[in-house]
Design a binder for these strands. Structure first.
Lengths: 334, 334
DNA sequence: GAGGGCGATGTTATCGCTAACATGATCGCT
DNA sequence: AGCGATCATGTTAGCGATAACATCGCCCTC
């Protein structure tokens, strides 16, 4: 039974003190080159790997970042998590995921506390809904924290996709194609994403002097898109729809197809997210593509900045999405 | 500046030794009820939370599980990760994600090593491809490890979706509808999921005495499904297709639609995965639904068993998927 | 009533690191 | 030559828990 080699084992083999080994490991300047390589050789020979727990205990900070997210398989949050994880790994940080079933005050506080028990270096919260954002207020202020998709008017360090611009582009794209106005099937009211997209849609209509149709609220699922689509399909005056995400758009497409309303000949549709399948919907979906990688990198940068400086940031960053044009948009029927 | 209270602070306040506090925390039996509640009160008053790093250092095991997965947004792995995370949280374990960009020997070994540096209690590998499985062979044998979707013939502790049965059901479902034979658009060759689904498909055809058409290989994307679909759409003898996953099926649906071949009137299609949107494809897709929650729970149970007993398991478990019948299957045209 | 066992608690050592201070040797400068 | 700065390294003291052993009553038994 052989236990893992510790620093003293390396020290003994290299004929130095364990502190010197520590110095080599942490790239301290004052070590002779010759000693350094002797230590390196000993490390390699023993296959030594530092015990993170010991280091964490003494420094009070582990080299890992805690992520708080809702346990969902939604495309946005899932992509964000994957992208963030990769960025963190490249920066040498482990990522610990603490998912919660509901994003309320208590659950979030508890998830954050669990992360702090592990002495994470920083915390990243995917907080796309109102309740999550409130929870951020009563968290300890001295821990580096970044929110993704939080309340644009409230959170401290925050990175978001520019929902308003994306929605405005989508709406304008439809207006530019010649449509009188654009209907909107929105996401759930408590999501900031929904709010931003509604706002951008309204702005674009107002700017164009177009009539503002009633809002069709839904959740993010294809099922609710389908229900909204069933309504819209039987209204002949509806010729252009901006769906708050691609799955809603999928549901709408099916409702249109069932009712025999052809897309894009009779009705044009734009989605949001650019899920990988969107190009293979029938017809291929014009949509708004957020850059999740950029969001992940920006939030990590913001977090690292706070970790290194020890100071909280109030910086907030916005990542602009791009419109991907496909076949689901055409001029209105004459 | 107030540092976090430590065990000694609680001990002082409660008028006991820190060891007694430790005993209360770990539910040791030999503590008087009165003392126990005094300690509990002190803990509550100070808002004390144990330092996990310290505990990890002394016990040599942290209460967390390391997950190794490929950094992908594929529906299967992502769902699995989410489900596992939730199950682990319920069992009181934190989950640390170590994603790798390629599932080769070196990357996996490295990811596992990083997890061991943190003294994780166990490791879960989502290892759906051949190369990943080889990597499992040269890992230390004394760490609790479970693979999900590994090689059925090799891995030690393993939980998989029963691909063969699922594929057999899908194929038989099409044959039962009256089709002479069933074509198959498969996933990438190096995935076990692909292999299992191909095997099930072949078995079902053989059992029915049906002709075995050539295999159409693809990857998991809608794009490759579309390309395969373009071929299939121009072959009038093709009336039934089993796609290795729903996104492939989506691509095939579009290719059929473009070529004017109606689904299900002229061609029937069955997918695999039951992604949430499958019910809203045009037409709604008949598909095979794996129970990711069950896979996650089974693998966690296997892992906890090893963690508690300290012994490796060779147990392997299989979770049967179910067929979800929707509108994409009909009898062949006469 | 002495010895043994056990239940409740305290004391000490230890896990594997880093921080802080201590020690020598080397070197430049007056 | 003497003296402090600087470099290379060693020594010691924690970080905050658990483990192992020690202690002290107390009750039971013969």
């Amino acid at each position: 039974m052989m236990r893992n080699p510790a620093m003293t084992d390396v020290a003994r083999l290299a004929g130095v003190s364990h502190q010197t080994v520590s110095r080599v490991l942490n790239d301290h300047p004052n070590v002779r080159e010759q000693t350094r390589s002797r230590v390196r050789a000993a490390i390699a020979e023993l296959g030594y790997r530092p015990n993170r727990a010991a280091r964490t205990l003494v420094t009070g900070r582990s080299q890992s970042i805690g992520v708080v997210t809702q346990n969902s398989t939604l495309y946005g949050p899932a992509s964000l998590l994957a992208a963030f994880e990769q960025a963190a790994a490249e920066a040498g940080f482990a990522v610990s995921v603490g998912s919660v079933s509901v994003l309320d005050r208590r659950s979030i506080a508890e998830a954050v506390a669990r992360h702090l028990d592990h002495r994470v270096a920083g915390i990243m919260v995917i907080a796309p809904v109102t309740s999550a954002n409130e929870a951020l207020d009563d968290l300890p202020a001295d821990v580096p924290l970044v929110a993704i998709d939080g309340d644009p008017r409230r959170s401290a360090a925050l990175v978001t996709v520019d929902q308003v611009t994306g929605a405005r582009d989508a709406t304008r794209h439809l207006l530019d194609a010649g449509h009188q106005t654009v209907w909107h099937v929105s996401g759930p009211a408590e999501w900031f994403d929904s709010a931003g997209r509604i706002e951008g849609w309204r702005e674009a209509l107002r700017a164009a002097g177009a009539e503002l149709p009633p809002l069709m609220p839904a959740d993010w699922t294809a099922a609710s898109g389908y229900r909204a689509g069933q309504m819209l399909a039987r209204m002949p005056e509806v010729t252009a729809i901006f769906a708050a995400n691609d799955h809603l758009a999928l549901g709408i497409l099916r409702a249109m197809s069932e009712r025999g309303r052809r897309v894009p000949e009779e009705v044009s549709i734009v989605g949001f997210d650019d899920v990988p399948e969107a190009a293979y919907f029938i017809p291929p979906l014009t949509t708004i593509r957020p850059d999740f990688g950029a969001v992940a990198r920006a939030s990590l940068a913001l977090l690292l900045e706070q970790i290194e400086s020890g100071l909280p940031t109030t910086s907030r960053q916005t990542v602009a999405p791009t419109l991907v044009s496909r076949a689901s948009v055409a001029p209105p029927p004459r």
